[in-house]
Design a protein around this nucleic acid. Structure first.
Lengths: 121, 121
DNA sequence: ACCATATTTCCAAAATAATGGAAATATGGA
DNA sequence: TCCATATTTCCATTATTTTGGAAATATGGT
């Protein structure tokens, strides 16, 4: 992934409203949610919502699909994965302690709290 | 991880200069790099560099360590992991296709390009 | 053709973030 | 104490982003 791409993705997520939108869409999967549903859930004026949806879409984080009058937005998992990969690239190159402890994949048995048991999207 | 924390972390990374700094520090591991080294590598005026380092530090992404006159900065892997976990929380809840294909952990054998073979930091 | 709904685009005002020179602080050495 | 090096803080200027009302566009139903 190119730096510029990663940067737009990060900028996309670096805003309260947009992060909320994205996080509503992550569990929603491929069908996604209608713009209206998002607007109601987050209580946003249409223009504001639309602005942020465009932003996220241009950042490659959302896909758009029309069904009749309503536009459905869904999280783009592939883009998300690419971003995560970009951020963690070349981790653990240095051998000085502190890295390995955290870098090592979490053992399958005895999982820690959800925040520590990430798996690829 | 709290939304607010994730948001500061994302805002921290959502800037060319800061993303560059962070990515220089990721492979540098625990010893990190001196502010001066970063400034030289990125050709930044001291005030600008300092501004961004503070930003990253307040975002919890960097740790600071003094050795004599020089300040060393290092990437905070724990914070990074928490952020990644936060972003991917509740992935794959919906069963409609498109998610599983991407969500499934990459098979150990026959690894794809580096951008597809992320492992925890 | 006309009306209703869903959503977007336009745009100007308001808010927020970034830049870098100059002065200040911190540390170490002679 | 005095000087040099490393880095930060101060702060005014400049640049970028966000907001939301009003008007425009898109689609579907009658």
């Amino acid at each position: 992934m190119e730096t510029k791409t990663a940067l737009t993705a990060l900028t996309g997520l670096a805003h309260t409203t947009r992060l909320s939108i994205f996080r509503l869409l992550v569990p929603a999967g491929a069908p996604g949610l209608a713009a209206g549903q998002l607007g109601e859930a987050l209580r946003l004026p249409p223009a504001t919502l639309s602005f942020h949806l465009k932003e996220l879409r241009h950042a490659g984080l959302l896909t758009q699909r029309r069904a009749g009058r309503t536009l459905y937005y869904a999280a783009d998992y592939t883009a998300m994965n690419a971003l995560l990969a970009y951020l963690t690239e070349n981790c653990c190159q240095a051998d000085a302690g502190g890295c390995e402890a955290v870098c090592a994949p979490v053992p399958a048995r005895k999982r820690r709290s959800s925040s520590a048991t990430r798996r690829p999207l």
